[in-house]
Amino acid sequence: MKYKGIELEGLDKKVKLSHSRVMETDEGTDWIEKLLTCDKAALTPTQFHEVSALSSVINMDYQICNGGIGQYVGNGYHEYRAPYSDDDVEHYGAVEQVYMLRALADFGDNVFPYADSCNREVRQWANLFDHIDFDSVDYYDEVIGEYVSPEAVEECEQSYYGGVSDHVGLLCEAYAQYLCKSYGID
């Protein structure tokens, strides 16, 4: 399969992003690993932005699948963060993550046309996520004596766990391959 003149291979492999760094390991993420460990100083500003956007979606996936949207917000993954060092990327907030999810779904339409329903689900989920009020993700319910999430947050989480996350992992790995090959990263 070619995408914008770049030959993409192994698109049928199993890809699994780890959702528990203690209990699980990533599977089939060789291109993601290459991309995220490349020399960031050698990237153009546009390339650095693309790598940062993809990394931000991967971090979002990990946080949501590991502990829900409450953990994602509690740990600040919905907000911008500058790189910690020269080897790090920027972490973009929720707005940029939604934009990248939509771009990944568009990429999926070209590279995985047989998965049009999965690509559509990623777009639909991005739209749900885009409407979450991060200031009220979890609140303390005094009647039951515990923190609860609004129904919209629970619906968004269940939809993500129900298959969107798996397709996002596949899209991230394929897009990482495209970026690596277009940047000349071996």
Rank of each mutant, 00 (worst) to 15 (best):
K4P: 12
G5V: 10
G10T: 01
K13D: 00
K14M: 00
V15G: 01
M23K: 14
D26C: 04
T29D: 01
T29S: 03
I32H: 04
D39N: 12
K40W: 04
A41M: 06
T44P: 02
P45G: 05
T46K: 04
Q47V: 02
Q47I: 03
F48Q: 09
F48E: 02
F48Y: 13
S52H: 01
A53L: 11
A53M: 12
S55C: 05
M60D: 11
M60Y: 13
D61W: 08
Y62M: 07
I64E: 08
N66P: 03
G74Y: 02
N75W: 11
Y77R: 04
E79V: 00
Y92Q: 00
Y92V: 00
G93L: 00
V95G: 00
Q97S: 03
M100F: 15
R102I: 13
A105T: 07
D106H: 10
D106Y: 10
D109V: 08
F112D: 00
P113K: 12
Y114C: 06
A115M: 08
Q124E: 11
W125K: 08
L128N: 09
D130C: 12
D130E: 13
D130N: 13
F134Q: 05
D135Y: 14
D138M: 13
D138S: 14
G145Y: 06
G145S: 07
Y147T: 10
Y147F: 09
Y147V: 07
Y147W: 05
V148K: 09
A152E: 15
E154T: 13
E157T: 07
Y160P: 08
G162C: 11
G162P: 10
L170E: 01
C172V: 15
C172M: 11
I185K: 04
D186T: 12
